[in-house]
């Protein structure tokens, strides 16, 4: 799985060494409704179906039955300079697990967290408005900080 070639161990070398996979997999919320025994992943471009299956079964003990991968083309975006650039492509995987497995994508932003975030955003916006007001009132000191006064 690892693409790096580590140096051969010799007496006197470090005994404990952690081998981490070079790949990444990211669980994402699917755009469409999918069955409960299915999960959607963003995966590394170099990963094959067999890699995905090994990653999930060996590290997380997920009962994987079937893996399907596809590459989504990167979107064309307009560069501020005027020309268009293409975003990098992304590989996705649909992983089917056994029938009895039930998995639902977690609610990452429950109400408490969302309220806290909103409150924080309000604070930011208030500060921003205050700054704009100060700026408009002290237009004759443009460029200087607002606390700077004679």
């Amino acid at each position: 799985m690892a693409t790096k070639t580590y140096p051969l161990w010799k007496p006197g070398g470090p005994q404990l060494r952690i081998f981490l996979p070079d790949f990444y997999m990211k669980l994402v919320r699917p755009a469409r409704a999918i069955p409960p025994n299915m999960a959607h992943f963003k995966i590394d471009m170099k990963m094959s179906k067999i890699d995905v299956k090994n990653y999930l079964t060996k590290i997380y003990n997920v009962p994987v039955k079937e893996v399907r991968t596809h590459i989504k083309k990167g979107m064309l975006i307009r560069h501020p300079a005027g020309h268009k650039v293409e975003e990098p492509d992304q590989k996705y995987a649909f992983v089917t697990m056994e029938k009895n497995v039930e998995f639902h994508f977690p609610n990452l932003f429950p109400d408490v967290v969302r309220q806290a975030l909103e409150k924080e955003e309000e604070g930011f916006s208030d500060a921003l408005n205050k700054m704009r007001l100060d700026k408009s009132q002290k237009w004759h000191r443009s460029g200087a900080p607002t606390w700077f006064s004679v």
């Binding site: 469409r32 409704a33 069955p35 299915m38 399907r68 649909f94």
Partner: peptide, 11 residues
Amino acid sequence: RQVGYNPTIYG
């Protein structure tokens, strides 16, 4: 069990 998933789910 729910039915009516999009055919792309099944490839």
